[in-house]
């Protein structure tokens, strides 16, 4: 079977976070705070930009999933996804390997702002970029679900190298599998993507696949500042 990259493009205006979403993410809901005002200003500016987020996926047949070994093979390419992710993917008969980027704008700007000592502004631009690429990937994820539904197939959450004990270095395998694509994302020898605001990973496809609780709910990182935010929100 020939591998095909399904491409999706979204104008930034469609995938930028809403003000509320950004405010919650940064735990900054004081509408008079300069950080908040800057969020309002930049979101508005970015909404009228003509840049796009671009991403997509390649679907391949799953050869085998070995949960205990934490391995999964897709059309002859083996991934060391770790036991946890392998468990989540064990019902998959096919898998979509995906890439998506919000473009270089966000990290270029954050870099310039940091260099000028404007750390607050850099932090906000950086966060907008992080949420934008996730929002674009949410759309692609939904498009994949829609594409598979008529075939009676369901899909899993998305999982990325660097998470849940899936070694980051597996990015090299992932990029090798995905092959030629129009996203323009490149990989450094230490497995970091450029542009920085990019995501990559795998989504399982199968008749018994399902989405499950993920993210902060299952994370064990005790020192993370986002955990403190979640705990505070629960306490309120």
């Amino acid at each position: 079977m020939e591998r095909r990259f399904h491409t999706y493009r979204y104008p930034l205006s469609e995938v930028l976070p809403s003000l509320d979403e950004l405010a919650r993410y940064l735990h900054m809901e004081d509408t008079e705070h300069p950080a908040y005002l800057y969020m309002v200003e930049r979101l508005e500016q970015l909404r009228s930009s003509d840049l796009e987020a671009v991403g997509g996926y390649v679907v391949g047949r799953v050869d085998s999933v070995e949960v205990a070994e934490g391995r999964l093979a897709v059309e002859g390419v083996s991934f060391a996804v770790g036991a946890q992710v392998a468990g989540y993917l064990k019902e998959a008969s096919e898998a979509a390997l995906f890439l998506c980027t919000a473009g270089a704008l966000f990290s270029d700007e954050a870099h310039a702002l940091n260099a000028a000592g404007d750390f607050l502004e850099a932090y906000i631009i950086d966060a907008i970029g992080s949420l934008t690429v996730e929002r674009a990937m949410d759309r692609i994820h939904a498009a994949l679900a829609e594409e598979q539904a008529p075939l009676g197939l369901k899909i899993t959450n998305r999982y990325s190298p660097g998470y849940c004990n899936w070694p980051l270095l597996d990015q090299h395998q992932l990029f090798h599998f995905v092959g030629e694509n129009p996203t323009g994302i490149t990989l450094s020898p230490s497995a970091l993507m450029h542009p920085i605001k990019s995501v990559s990973g795998i989504i399982g496809i199968g008749t018994h696949c399902r989405r499950r609780a993920y993210g902060c709910v299952i994370c064990q990182n005790k020192t993370c500042i986002y955990r403190r935010i979640v705990q505070r929100e629960k306490a309120v």
């Binding site: 940064l26 735990h27 900054m28 705070h33 300069p34 950080a35 000592g117 750390f119 607050l120 932090y123 906000i124 500042i225 403190r228 935010i229 505070r232």
Partner: peptide, 16 residues
């Protein structure tokens, strides 16, 4: 956990 990153960055701005 009484303030978060944006508040800290604003204080740093005033300090600068």
């Amino acid at each position: 956990g009484k303030v978060f990153v944006p508040q800290m960055l604003l204080s740093a701005k005033a300090m600068n």
